[in-house]
């Protein structure tokens, strides 16, 4: 039986508050995953770049595990598997934990690449005027690394916005989960998933615009007037 497209149902779901809330949860999960991933990833990147094996080896191991396994498997292990060992997390806790741990591994690699791309001479120059190691990081390495990190970081934000949908598998009530729940009402499968797709598109497009502004801000010292440094 061909049902055809139901405009009325489509607009009803497009303005549905329950779905809108789900989209806000998706947004919240993304903000949390990226910000906690950045903090955790920064320290993992520093460990990874350390000359000391006892720091770099655990960091490499961490990155290997979390980049080498699907987030889906990680979430199921955290939510469904760990209780077997007596470690229990709620759905929300499991989702936040899984997203943060996984994203930290990806962001650690992005941050490491950004820091490594700052020329060694910059560090020498900063030390030579008497900066301490943390001042060198804060005033000289970090701002220059940021410029390199922003494009891949923006990619990560875009990707995480969509990846959060995986948490629906452990019944986290984000956009996709709520879309699936609403299907039970009228079985408007196509209309509902198109609405969900539109929400995802609005969020990723908004992020694109924000990212471009950030890139301009960090790139202003390297604008079209620039003739290159070395």
């Amino acid at each position: 039986m061909v049902k055809g497209w139901n405009w009325e149902g489509f607009f009803e779901y497009l303005t549905n508050y329950y779905l809108f809330e789900g989209a806000m949860v998706t947004l919240g999960l993304t903000v949390f995953a990226i910000s906690s991933g950045l903090v955790l990833g920064f320290f993992i990147a520093l460990m990874r770049m350390s000359r000391h094996h006892f720091l770099s080896a655990p960091a490499s191991f961490y990155i290997w595990i979390f980049r080498g396994t699907p987030l889906l498997v990680q979430l199921i292990i955290i939510y469904t598997g760990l209780p077997q060992l007596g470690i229990r997390f709620t759905v929300i806790q499991s989702t936040l934990l899984g997203l943060a741990l996984c994203e930290a591994a990806y962001l650690a690699e992005i941050i490491r690449a950004g820091i490594s791309a700052v020329p060694k001479g910059q560090v020498a120059a900063a030390r030579a005027i008497g900066m301490t190691e943390s001042q060198v990081m804060r005033y000289v390495i970090a701002p220059q690394a940021m410029r390199i990190i922003i494009p891949p970081l923006g990619n990560s934000v875009n990707s995480v916005l969509k990846t959060t949908s995986i948490a629906s598998i452990i019944s986290m009530e984000e956009l996709l989960r709520r879309t699936q729940v609403l299907i039970q009402e009228k079985f408007l499968v196509l209309e509902l998933f198109v609405v969900a797709a539109i929400y995802y598109l609005i969020m990723t497009t908004a992020w694109d615009l924000i990212q471009r502004r950030i890139e301009r801000r960090f790139g202003k010292a390297y604008g079209p007037m620039s003739v290159g440094n070395h």
């Binding site: 001479g121 910059q122 020498a124 120059a125 030579a128 005033y139 220059q144 010292a221 440094n229 070395h230």
Partner: peptide
Amino acid sequence: LRAKVGMVFQHFELFPH
């Protein structure tokens, strides 16, 4: 100690940002 000694490098090493 380094703050008391100025240094100038071959490739300038001004902070580009």
